[in-house]
Write a protein that binds this DNA or RNA. Structure first.
Lengths: 150, 150
DNA sequence: TTCGAATATTACGTATACGAATTAAATTGT
DNA sequence: ACAATTTAATTCGTATACGTAATATTCGAA
């Protein structure tokens, strides 16, 4: 599996693709003039553009992030004027995350930049191959969640 | 590309697989009793087990890491008694990285743990699908390096 | 109703990686 | 030989994500 060269190891490839795509998204965003959205925000924004007002933990669940990871992410998003924490009147332990005006306004430019960047990165890959790849990655993800793995 | 659900977005899948596999490797290492090797060390160790004595920058090149990323990585590996920095007699700017006894001894157990973990995570995936996936990831990686992307 | 378990979020320390700027040494062009 | 450039490594600040522990509430059972 890790045999031969590193370029033959799927883990190496996945790591590098993750970092490379993240870096390209950052760059693509900057080129499109979007300066307050970092790659890690995309998942949360994507969810909030359809369902406004979610709890941090729920937002994390959709994006596959631990609650403790959400704290810092939301801190940065709040600092960058994209979301706002509001105390939940029903449950004083919880809070609700809502988009600010800037967060709402970001949808067009961000989607545009993300789509453009991903299209460029996945250019020249046959649809069937992309489907196969997604299926393989989903299988690995499932295996990661099995007992004894996580 | 990012359309429908997040699970349909290759970037989401790649991110989660990267984090999931990393976490599984950490766990797998611990289960095998390897306590001083963190997932990020694997690439560097893998290289050093065949070519002893490389420069930090060269080691980074093989693993796809920036020189500035190597500094911290090597600091941690040195702290964990796996490698040792030696001044390069030929070039006083440079240093040479060499395995310690512990670093050499780690080969068996680490390879065992890594192989076992990756085999479990990629279980049930047809060889042809895995090959397709690797080819797709390599293509994306190439696209990431194109002008205007990086 | 009050005490103990469950839940929501945060705090804190650590790992991982990058880019920009810095330092030191080697190299090159004149 | 020496100034200008290039190269090797590090430092520093930032982003990203995790796990464990702490904090604050809510909820359920006795």
């Amino acid at each position: 599996m890790i045999s031969r060269s590193l370029k033959d190891c799927p883990y190496y490839l996945v790591s590098r693709v993750y970092l490379g795509v993240t870096s390209a998204l950052k760059k693509g965003m900057a080129v499109s003039g979007v300066n307050n959205v970092k790659p890690a925000y995309i998942g949360a924004l994507f969810t909030l553009w359809r369902e406004k007002s979610l709890r941090p933990s729920e937002l994390g669940r959709r994006a596959g992030l631990e609650p403790s990871s959400m704290t810092g992410l939301l801190d940065r998003m709040e600092r960058d004027n994209l979301v706002k924490r509001t105390p939940d009147p029903q449950d004083r332990r919880a809070s609700r995350i809502e988009l600010t005006c800037d967060g709402i306004a970001a949808e067009g430019p961000v989607m545009e930049a993300v789509t453009h960047t991903l299209d460029a990165l996945f250019a020249g890959i046959p649809d069937t191959d992309l489907e196969t790849t997604k299926r393989v990655l989903r299988t690995v993800l499932t295996n990661c969640s099995k007992e004894g793995m996580k």
